[in-house]
């Protein structure tokens, strides 16, 4: 199974290619039944300047599947947990709905499901990944902004990309060890 052979899943994101079309957001809704009004992924817009000197950038964001996930640390029941391949998940059956993890997540990547009384979040689409497919948001993107793969595979596309391209990670100062790499 995927999580036995040592892997480290991550995303490389080329925001410049993002056209803010929201396909990834809707794909996630459909794939993972995310309630209307709640989001596992979203596009952060930055708009600047005065006419006619303007700038607009779009950053796709979602759970960072952190190296040291504070959500997992603070979870009192172990409902929030991390697989060996780095994917951070929530065991609904163990989730008491205290929402401590939401507060502890520097990226506000989690949301509360009133219907289930539990906290939910991006799963990197394990149900797909474990079958050898790529996450829904990665697949559906018209401009293929996201690259999903295994960081620990030295000659995988991800490792290669990060070796040769400059990138930044968000809010690394929290020590969470974010695993979304934004190309510059």
């Amino acid at each position: 199974m995927a999580e036995k052979t040592k892997k480290r899943y991550a995303l490389v994101i080329d925001s410049r290619k993002c056209i803010n079309c929201k396909a990834c957001v809707v794909a996630c809704k459909a794939e993972n039944g995310v309630p209307v009004g709640k989001f596992r992924n979203w596009i952060t817009e930055e708009r600047r300047g005065t006419y006619p000197h303007l700038l607009a950038t779009f950053d796709p964001e979602q759970c960072q599947h952190c190296q040291n996930p504070s959500c997992v640390r603070v979870c009192p029941t172990g409902a929030s947990w991390q697989r060996e391949d780095g994917i951070v998940l929530v065991k609904f059956d163990d989730c008491i709905g205290c929402r401590y993890c939401m507060i502890a997540c520097p990226y506000n990547a989690r949301y509360f499901r009133e219907d289930e009384g539990v906290v939910d979040k991006c799963t990197f689409c394990v149900q797909r990944v474990d079958k050898g497919k790529i996450p829904a948001c990665v697949e559906t993107c018209p401009s293929k902004v996201r690259l999903f793969g295994d960081l620990d595979d030295p000659d995988g596309a991800l490792a290669q990309m990060l070796m040769t391209r400059r990138y930044l990670t968000k809010k690394s100062e929290t020590g969470n060890g974010p695993q979304l790499y934004y190309l510059l």
């Binding site: 640390r73 603070v74 009192p76 029941t77 709905g97 205290c98 401590y100």
Partner: peptide
């Protein structure tokens, strides 16, 4: 306040030394 108040007992079947709430 819990989303699933009846699951509160789960607080006491786990001990997570890193979790202040635990």
């Amino acid at each position: 306040d819990l989303g699933n108040w009846y699951r509160f007992y789960k607080l006491f079947i786990h001990f997570k030394w890193q979790s202040p709430m635990s």
